[in-house]
Amino acid sequence: MTTRKADAQHHAKPPAVPSAAATPLTPYARLPRRHHDRHIAHSTVDAFGQAHWLLAAREPGRGRGALKPYDASVVTVGPDGRSHETELSALRARFPRIDALPDGGFVVADARSRRSEQHVQVFDALGRESWAFRAGDAIEELLTDHEGRLWVGYFDEGVFGNDELSHPGLRCWSAGGEPLWAYEAADGASAIYDCYALNVSEDAAWACPYADWDLLEVRPDGTVRRRANGTAGATALAVHQGGVTFLGGYRDERDRLVHAELRHQEVRPYATGRLVGPDGGPLGQRRRTVCRGPRIYVQEEPHTAWAVYDIGAVNDR
């Protein structure tokens, strides 16, 4: 993913705005300790607030030779802290991305794939594979919505690669593999070179892509609203009642928060801050984020716990 290594000096910084105090994350969900001896292949938080860990005996694809299908399990922890486990058989993903479906099933995609591979597997609630399909190489983000649609953002090696499915940079698929929508640059807008940040809420999908950083709002009917945005390098975003908060940036701005108003044609910052861990300490360099409406979920190494930053809870106080 070469664009993520771009030199920060080539990108305009947001206008000077007042600086806010550090904001700590709130603990959200934790993998039960009895599962800590297994390899965490991937983890996410779904559209309904449940946390999921995809666990395998060892890291997929390690060693020589072709990858053999492997068994794995999904440990699900609900908002109430209760957990249950679902066994999945014959996974084929070397670099898995997982999310849950509204019917209790799961979708597991391999982030890297060849054009001949059916690299997205759909499992029912009992862990049985129902079907498989292609969704394109170089998957950066995979998020399902409340209706079971799959929103997929791609990084630059897919956008500029030889798999035409990845070229739009952002697509929506049905859980059955039917292409529902693909981004098209129109009216002089820039193409998506890398889908840096993706948020899937109940009523829209939001993206902040490289290279112009415009905030894209994709409505259920497929229409796209663009807002000019000067905040470069954000890797996560949250939206709530006319406001947006961006997390991330280049170099020493990885933990930066930029709070802004959603205007008709632009994003207007009004304050900045810094996101810190639940204990007030700095966030680690290697972390995962999942964005759902007003929430940014953050998972640091060793990936056994999720924490959350909820701009809805902050703004509604």
Rank of each mutant, 00 (worst) to 15 (best):
R295C: 14
R134M: 07
G65D: 02
S83D: 09
R268A: 13
R58M: 13
S116V: 13
L262W: 05
I192P: 11
G188M: 06
R33H: 11
A93K: 02
Y210W: 13
G243L: 02
W53C: 10
I311A: 07
L216K: 12
E164S: 15
D156E: 14
A125M: 05
V267Y: 05
W181H: 07
A313Q: 14
F133A: 01
A135V: 06
L247W: 09
N229S: 14
A260K: 08
A56T: 15
P32W: 06
E157L: 13
M1Q: 15
P269R: 11
V159G: 04
L150W: 02
Y270I: 07
A138T: 00
A185V: 14
A22W: 07
R115M: 14
A100M: 06
G61I: 08
L215W: 09
L262E: 07
I296C: 07
G81A: 00
E87Y: 06
G188V: 08
A47D: 10
L142G: 00
C291F: 00
L54Y: 02
W173Y: 11
W181Q: 04
A21P: 06
R288S: 11
N229Q: 09
R254S: 15
Y309S: 06
M1E: 15
Y193A: 14
P102Y: 10
E261P: 01
Q118I: 00
R288G: 09
A236W: 03
V224S: 11
D255K: 00
D316Y: 06
V45T: 02
H167P: 02
A29F: 01
D145G: 08
G284I: 10
A8N: 10
F133Y: 08
A93Y: 03
E59S: 15
V152L: 14
G249K: 03
V314P: 10
M1G: 15
A57F: 08
L180I: 15
F133C: 05
F160W: 12
L262R: 07
V108N: 01
V74N: 06
Q265T: 10
P302M: 14
G281I: 11
R288T: 05
R149T: 08
I296F: 09
D279M: 12
A186I: 13
G161L: 10
P220K: 08
R268V: 08
V75A: 04
E141Q: 00
G293N: 09
S19P: 05
V75Y: 05
V244T: 12
A132F: 01
E178Q: 10
F95M: 10
V239T: 15
G242P: 14
V17T: 09
G61M: 07
C195H: 10
G248S: 06
L165H: 12
V298E: 01
R251A: 14
T272E: 13
R256A: 06
N229H: 08
V77D: 05
G242H: 12
E59N: 12
A90E: 14
L101A: 02
P269S: 12
A307Q: 05
E141Y: 00
D214V: 09
L275M: 03
G312R: 06
V290G: 10
T86D: 06
W131R: 13
R33S: 12
D203Q: 07
T144K: 05
V200A: 07
G248I: 03
T3K: 13
E178Y: 08
R34L: 07
R254W: 11
L67K: 15
G49M: 02
A8C: 09
L275K: 03
A109L: 01
L25M: 03
G65Y: 03
E253M: 03
G312S: 06
R92K: 09
G230E: 13
V122E: 05
G177E: 05
A138R: 03
